[in-house]
Simulated scan of single mutants.
Amino acid sequence: MNNALDLFSLEGKVAIVTGGTGVLGGAMAHGLAAAGASVGILGRRAEVAQSVADSITADGGRALPLPADVLDKETLIAARETIMGAWGRIDVLVNAAGGNMSGATIFNDVTFFNMQEDAFDQVVKLNLHGTLLPSQVFGEVMAEQGSGSIINISSMAAEQAITRVLGYGNAKAAIDNFTRWLAVEMAQKYGEGIRVNAIAPGFFIGEQNRDFLLNPDGTHTARGQLIIDNTPMSRFGEPDELVGTAIWLASSAATFITGIIVPVDGGFSAFSGV
């Protein structure tokens, strides 16, 4: 190969980003498209999925909205049919759908002892089942092709205990194990061309956590400042800072990489606090 940068090209590849209507998923969808991929924007909010797809198209990329629910297999199968009808293959799946729920967060009136089991189940289902089902539906195409890259989204809450986020932390810890398990399963049964990895973001400002981390005037809350104090780079991440890792894991530059969880966290996971 004459140009090493060609290893990172996604030209000719087809990617699906679940949660592509969110801040982090949307950033990765834009990044994959800029690297050459045709990208399906999968999310429950049809109008937002259309808006993200339109934005990618306006930037010169290729994108389709895929209104679907990651917990509804029938809508995922319909999305698969749309992608296969339009582009004929699926090379990359980014499982970016997920998030936290207040009922499974130990905060204010919710304690470990009065937290409702249903709330815990809901956040685990959103994150774990919401990764499992798309991996089944879209990963089946990869198995038939003998090639593909599945990229799950983990969290710093999977690696070490972070106060409050009981349900979310347990769900993301399960994502880490699922990533390793599926990496082995795919490689052993369907060939070395199918890889499964995860990205573990550090702390990024999104729709769900903004009020926990930032005051209305933009200054840090006490919890936000505690995170900054334990992040060696002393700042929150920017959504675009996930793009490079996503492109790398999706591309030919990572053909011998499977079953790993990559922190993108400003050093948070490396720091002991001392």
Rank of each mutant, 00 (worst) to 15 (best):
His30Tyr: 12
Ala27Glu: 02
Phe112His: 10
Asn177Met: 14
Ile228His: 02
Asp217Ser: 09
Leu249Val: 07
Gln116Ala: 12
Asn209Phe: 10
Asp217Asn: 14
Ala68Arg: 08
Pro201Trp: 05
Gly244Asn: 00
Ile194Leu: 10
Arg210Ile: 08
Ala78Cys: 08
Glu81Asp: 14
Glu192Gln: 15
Ala198Lys: 00
Arg195Cys: 06
Asn230Met: 05
Asp72Tyr: 11
Gly98Ile: 00
Asp265Ile: 04
Glu81Ala: 14
Phe268His: 10
Gln50Glu: 15
Leu42Gly: 02
Ile175Tyr: 05
Phe203Arg: 06
Gly193Glu: 15
Gly206Phe: 02
Gly167Pro: 04
Ala270Ile: 15
Gly98Val: 00
Arg44Glu: 07
Glu117Trp: 07
Asp72Phe: 14
Leu5Thr: 13
Glu140Trp: 09
Thr75Asp: 14
Gly224His: 01
Phe107Gln: 06
Val92Thr: 07
Val123Gln: 09
Gly148Arg: 06
His30Trp: 08
Gly99Glu: 05
Ile175Cys: 08
Lys73Pro: 08
Gly40Ile: 01
Thr219Ala: 08
Gly22Cys: 10
Asp211Arg: 11
Met233Ala: 10
Arg195Ser: 02
Val39Gln: 06
Ala29Gln: 12
Phe271Met: 01
Met115Cys: 06
Ala49His: 02
Thr245Ile: 07
Met115Pro: 03
Ala171Glu: 00
Arg45Cys: 03
Asn197Met: 03
Pro216Val: 02
Glu74Tyr: 03
Ile194Arg: 07
Gly12Met: 09
Met1Phe: 11
Ala143Gly: 11
Asp69Glu: 11
Pro134Glu: 06
Arg164Val: 04
Ala174Thr: 09
Trp181Asn: 13
Val92Pro: 05
Gln160Lys: 15
Arg164Gln: 12
Glu241His: 01
Ser102Pro: 13
Glu140Ala: 13
Ile77Trp: 09
Asn3Val: 10
Ala158His: 01
Gln145Leu: 04
Leu7Arg: 15
Gly148Met: 02
Ile257Thr: 14
Ile153Glu: 00
Ala58Val: 12
Gly98Phe: 01
Gln122Leu: 12
Asp6Arg: 12
Leu226Cys: 01
Asp91Ile: 06
Ala4His: 11
Val110Phe: 06
Gly20Cys: 04
Phe107Gly: 03
Ile56Gly: 07
Val124Gly: 04
Asn230Tyr: 06
Ser272Gly: 15
Asn100Lys: 10
Asp59Leu: 13
Val48His: 04
Thr131Val: 06
Gly244Trp: 00
Gly191Arg: 09
Ala97Arg: 04
Gly22Tyr: 07
Lys189Thr: 15
Met142His: 08
Ser155Pro: 04
Gly130Pro: 07
Glu140Asn: 12
Asp91Tyr: 02
Ile205Thr: 08
Gln145Pro: 07
Thr18Gln: 09
Val14Ile: 15
Ile56Lys: 07
Asn127Met: 00
Pro67Val: 07
Thr105Gly: 01
Leu5Asn: 13
Val165Ser: 10
Ala78Ile: 01
Ala63Thr: 12
Ala68Pro: 07
Asp121Phe: 05
Tyr168Ser: 01
Ser135Val: 06
Met233Lys: 09
Val165Ile: 11
